[in-house]
Design a protein around this nucleic acid. Structure first.
Length: 560
RNA sequence: UGGUCUAUGGUGUAAUGGUAACACUACGGUUUUUGGUGCCGUCUUUCUAGGUUCGAGUCCUAGUAGACCAACCA
């Protein structure tokens, strides 16, 4: 751990307490246990960063464990995607594990439980069992099969395993307490019959363990010291401990489940079921569509691993219900990109600017700083000529005191180039401006050191040379979802939530220096925001995804 | 109507019985070859009522509010 003073979150305090009470530091071990039934999303970032962060801080191993106990929802594609995303976030796991690795051991332990009279086979319908289970306010009643003989249970369980019964006909239940105030303790199901192909064990099994009869046991087998999960699993803890009691042998580390609050992000849906629906109904192009809240979507949108890690660190770990404002996530990516992204010039809504006193046919290659925020300045060359594109918003015919950019009769600097003065406009028959004519001050070249170059002018605008600029496709994404509190259970009518303008594709012009830009390279288009290169195979030309805007100021101004 | 968890500014998180703080947001100033960045500042905080204590955001009791629990999901 770092020597500088750092306040511990409550999970770290629990660990410190355990160490104080005699848990050896080299027995610490953590795990990140996703179910491979979808892609990782921003909501997983907290759990990933917490577990892997603890591993780094305590120099302890962290396993990546796939909780693959339900073959009807799980796929190899998701396993691969999860591994890719965890690595991309910058973390390394000690071992790659699967709950399915433990199916035989779990089965053997289940047989032991039956022999001890702690589990029984039930052949009622799920409706009947649900009825007997009672409600949170009313105790349940015992199943008529609860006192089936051990021999019969053993025989039925073997036949379940051997595939003699159809789906849903039999289950194995733990014999605990049908009157417990905790619903999960009312004889929970340990195994169900599923004649289903499993992405790893194939058709070896037709009975599959439930989450509760797999998770703690997997933790135990891997000797996980602290099993951290979200708060909705808190009622499971009693069962987690009950199952562990049945199999626990002294001398080994006994895993401890502790819970923290899941993070909710405003304006964002992170329910895997809904993300899957968006993909399947083709509201988006895939799990990595830049509008998705998935890790891979954020990556393609231009978010960096560091920004997501820093976001997770900033929101912290606690137990209360929360709704984090997306502006914090946006701050994190701006903060990171500001340090690293080269500044380049791009014009997304072009209008032609003609410098009337610039020699016809002349061109100059001017020096431009890449990122003034970086410690060592680097430069590139940008071409300048008589005809340029500038942003339509950067010119107004009539001067307004608060308008800092080009108007008729006033001077502005062309970034990295010369000071110009607006002279006249050319309009089409509808009164739309088609060209702006200006004159330039020959002695005012940026960095030339002349008196003229040091003159203060009202503003600075960006530009590209019409004959040199590259045409680029620029994709601007808006927030897909507009509601405040994501409700995990409510059905969603996506028509209500998907912003029809969530993707705007426009043609812009960028500096020729961007020809060599690689996939996912990010840039700050000056005054326009941060963008990243997306080498989508289906599109030939240069494509940029908008990552995030600069502060809202410019958006506000351009609205007026 | 049962059980469990939680409650600190608009948002998130600290303060571990001893001066309520940090970040985001919003707003303002300043610097600036982009109104961005940087720097400086302002606004706003301990759910309520009792109790313990020299002293309570912190401990106790009650209330209130929110969350979770009745899948052969995880």
């Amino acid at each position: 751990m770092s020597t500088e003073e750092k306040s511990l979150n409550f999970i770290e305090q629990i660990i410190e307490e355990d160490i104080k009470n005699g848990l050896s530091k080299n027995k610490l071990r953590f795990r990140f246990p996703p179910e491979p039934n979808g892609y990782l999303h921003i909501g997983h970032a907290s759990a990933i960063c917490l577990n892997f962060g603890l591993g780094i801080d305590y120099n302890a191993p962290v396993n990546l464990r796939f909780d693959d106990t339900n073959p009807s929802k799980e796929e190899q594609e998701y396993v691969d995607a999860i591994k890719r995303d965890v690595q991309w976030l910058g973390f390394q796991w000690e071992k790659e594990c699967y709950a399915s690795d433990y199916f035989q051991q779990l089965y053997d332990w289940a047989v032991e439980l039956i022999k001890k009279g702690k589990a029984y086979v039930d052949n009622q319908s799920s409706e009947e069992m649900a009825k007997q289970k009672g409600t949170p306010t009313q105790p349940g009643i015992d199943s008529p099969n609860r006192n089936r003989s051990i021999e019969e249970n053993l025989e039925l369980f073997t036949r379940m395993k051997n595939g003699e019964f159809p789906n849903g006909s039999y289950v194995l239940r733990a014999k605990i307490d049908m009157a417990s105030p905790n619903m999960l303790m009312r004889d929970p199901i340990m195994y169900r019959i599923m004649h289903e192909h499993h992405h790893r064990t194939g058709n070896n099994w037709c009975i599959y363990p439930m989450y509760d009869w797999a998770h703690g046991e997997s933790d135990y087998l891997e000797q996980i010291s602290h099993s951290l999960c979200t708060l909705e699993f808190l009622p499971h803890r009693e069962l987690y401990d009950w199952f562990l009691n049945q199999i626990y042998k002294t001398d080994l580390v006994r895993p401890k489940q502790r819970e923290f609050a899941r993070r909710n992000l405003s304006h964002t849906v992170v329910s895997k079921r809904k993300l899957l629906q968006l993909v399947e109904e083709k509201h988006v192009t895939g799990w990595d569509d830049p509008r998705m809240s998935t890790i891979s979507g954020l990556r393609r949108r231009g978010y960096t691993p560091a920004s997501i890690r820093n976001f997770a660190k900033t929101i912290g770990i606690a137990k209360r219900t929360n709704l984090i404002d997306v502006s914090l996530l946006e701050f994190c990516i701006r903060e990171d990109l500001n340090k690293t992204a080269p500044r380049v010039m791009a014009v997304l809504d072009p209008v032609k600017l003609v410098i009337t006193n610039y020699p016809e046919g002349q061109e100059e290659w001017l020096d431009a700083e890449n990122n003034p925020e970086e410690e060592t300045l680097t430069y590139r060359k940008v071409p300048f000529s008589k005809e340029l594109f500038i942003e339509r918003e950067d010119f107004k015919e009539e001067a307004d005191k608060k308008f800092f950019r080009l108007t008729l009769g006033t001077e502005v600097r062309l970034k990295n180039a010369y000071i110009i003065k607006g002279e006249s406009v050319v309009k089409d028959s509808n009164g739309n401006i088609t060209e702006i004519h200006c004159t330039y001050d020959v002695d005012s070249k940026s960095g030339s050191g002349t008196e003229a170059s040091k003159r203060k002018v009202k503003g600075t605008i960006h530009w590209v040379s019409t004959q040199h600029a590259l045409e680029a496709e620029v994709r601007i994404y808006d927030r897909l979802f507009t509601h405040e509190m994501p409700d995990g259970n409510k059905e969603i009518d996506f028509k209500e939530y998907i912003n029809p303008n969530s993707l705007k594709v426009i043609t812009g012009y960028v500096e020729p220096s961007l020809t060599t830009a690689k996939n996912l390279d990010h840039f700050q288009f000056q005054r326009l925001g941060y963008f990243c290169v997306d080498k989508d195979s289906s599109v030939e030309k240069l494509v940029f995804n908008k990552t995030v805007g600069l502060r809202d100021t410019w958006a506000k101004i351009s609205e007026q």
